[in-house]
């Protein structure tokens, strides 16, 4: 077992153990806090696929996060009001259906955004993805049917067959299981032929094209897959807060997801998880002391970028293995 695997295992145990203990001690707040870690980590696992493996600096992943959230909110609202969505299709409060819809919508939106954005690289790619996300953000703000600037409340958390989702711990466990599934998927994709091509596209796109693999197609599929995972996280996030608003779509959110990855370790399997743990801890602990907690987050980020490029996982487990 490599050192990184050990660290990953410890992170998993910590993330699963703390909420169990908190629930046992009758502290549901900490269970909810851990759920926030899990869901943000899931969103960042999605981004990590594009950013970490593919080197695609998407500054617009909030679009997919927010879309997932709005899919959950809109479907739940229609079900709650017993109004059909359109063409007689009813809303739903079933989580599996909502997740499916969130993943499909995020993917369908990511495909054209990716197809256009991936014609550019570097700073232009960052700006184009940002621009698309902001377009969706302003669209949400100006659409009064779904709350506009005020967002949408989900009055009762959506349902999962056989599990009482209204309780913090069962909902945490659902989110945790989804995160684990996403991490497994990430690991499989990373080691697959597609993953090889994607990482080669990051290291040297010309080399990839020279052996006959079109980098554009590889990147587009990765971008879309990445958006789908982040969209799923958005649906879970909306259910966690029982609310979805335009802030989920804003560029702050895109930046936050990038920060999580850099904190934890870019391109590392558990980077987003470690990053989300640090982020939520800082937000909670420092946020309790001062409103200006993000100043200290900035200092930490600065330290990591200057002295520990591999993020927390890089510090704990050394250089990534070469394969």
């Amino acid at each position: 077992m490599t050192r990184e695997t050990t660290v990953n295992l410890l992170i998993t145990l910590l993330l699963l153990g703390l909420p169990l203990v908190a629930a046992g001690m009758g502290e549901p707040f900490y269970v909810t806090l851990a759920t926030r870690v899990v869901v943000l980590a899931l969103a960042a696992v999605g981004l990590n696929l594009a950013l970490g493996l593919g080197g695609l600096l998407s500054f617009g992943h909030a679009a997919f996060f927010g879309l997932g959230g709005y899919v959950a909110g809109i479907l739940a609202t229609h079900a709650f009001n017993a109004e059909p969505l359109f063409a007689g299709i009813p809303g739903t409060t079933s989580m599996p259906l909502i997740w499916l819809a969130a993943v499909v919508v995020a993917g369908l939106v990511a495909l054209p955004i990716g197809a256009i954005s991936l014609r550019t690289t570097g700073v232009y790619f960052i700006m184009i993805t940002l621009a698309f996300a902001q377009m969706i953000y302003y669209f949400a703000i100006s659409w009064p049917a779904y709350g506009g600037e005020d967002g949408l409340s989900i009055y009762v958390r959506n349902a999962f067959p056989g599990i009482n989702t209204a309780q913090p711990l069962p909902y945490f466990l659902i989110c945790f299981a989804v995160l684990m599934a996403a991490l497994l998927l990430f690991r499989l994709v990373e080691g697959s032929r597609f993953g090889s091509a994607l990482q080669a596209a990051r290291q040297n796109g010309v080399r990839l094209a020279a052996v006959g693999i079109p980098p554009f197609q590889i990147r587009l599929v990765a971008f879309t897959l990445s958006a789908m995972i982040t969209g799923l996280a958005g649906a879970l996030y909306a259910d966690l807060n029982r609310f979805v608003g335009p802030s989920m779509l804003s560029w702050h959110m895109s930046g936050e997801l990038m920060v999580l990855i850099i904190l934890g370790g870019k391109g590392r399997l558990f980077g987003p998880v470690a990053g989300a743990m640090i982020f939520v801890c800082l937000e909670y602990v420092l946020g309790g002391i001062t409103e200006r907690w993000q100043f200290f987050l900035g200092l930490i980020l600065l330290g990591i970028v200057l002295f520990a490029r591999g993020g927390l996982l890089g510090l704990l487990s050394g250089k990534p293995r070469h394969v």
């Binding site: 499989l188 994709v189 697959s192 032929r193 597609f194 090889s196 091509a197 006959g212 693999i213 599929v221």
Partner: peptide
């Protein structure tokens, strides 16, 4: 893998 034209395999 490029020669085999098999870059859209996600699991193996």
């Amino acid at each position: 893998q490029a020669k085999e034209g098999s870059s859209f395999r996600f699991f193996r």
